[in-house]
Amino acid sequence: MDTFIQQIINGLVLGSIYALVALGYTMVYGILGLINFAHGEVVMIGALTALTVIKLLADSGLPGTLVVLIGMLAAIPVCMALGFTIERVAYRPLRNAPRLAPLITAIGVSIVLQQLAMIFWGRNYHAFPPILPTTGRDIGGAHITDLQIVIVLLAAAIMAGLMLLVNKTRLGRAMRATAENPQIAGLMGVNINVIISATFLIGSALAAVAGVMVSANYSIAHYHMGFILGLKAFTAAVLGGIGNLPGAMLGGVLLGLIESLGAGYIGDLTGGFLGSHYQDVFAFFVLILVLVFRPSGLMGEKVAERA
């Protein structure tokens, strides 16, 4: 039983990180109908920027939690600026181009960012300094660190904040209007360029937070880390219904749980026929099943509205 609870905890932590990154994909898709493949790289830049700041301050005698917070606060504006620039340079000129063009551009931006990060931060892995308390608590024989609790709670809080923003504020209303029909929204007095930039700014800020979480939890950052993370988060967004905010959250958590339980039990369930290397296969199998029965994802009813 304690193993099972531990696997659930593992899945929740992993899933919260996926969810946070997935939000970035889903926000941009919801408004532009564009899959921003560079989003994983923004997460990576956020992680490496924060890590650089954290390393500078690691020996300053400040409490570890404060140092990480400063690192995160430093990474957020960097990522926001990056997200803004990506949209201005790579996506805006192609807004009325065929849909394939921005998709290819997105992949191109992703490669450029990766290589730039490789030149800037080097090929080596960067270790997260051991400044955060490693204390934790036991729940029914399972172990969870304080950091992991913070990750899960912070992800949930950000999600709640984002829902409030989108559903209750003026900016949110404008975002929803733009998502529904940019031309009409423009005619109604919504400055869609501002709204789209705002979407990228918010998504990139979330990416920075996610980047810090990932590198703090796994104590590692690398110029290549955004690729797999981005791919998984994209999967989570599709699973939940791309374009739908709660869907991204649900998809992320679900994917984390599936991977964790898959890796933990698939071997025993199949009598050793399939091992834990099938955890991704398992996750994608679930994705295919969901897409067969609900082509727009678990919560993605609105997707078909955008042409």
Partner: peptide, 21 residues
């Protein structure tokens, strides 16, 4: 136990939890 991961992974919590048991 004989568990597997891949050469790009960073999360091993699931397989290590299984191994712990």
């Amino acid at each position: 136990a004989r568990e597997f991961t891949n050469d790009k992974a960073t999360d091993f919590a699931a397989i290590l939890t299984k191994i712990k048991s």
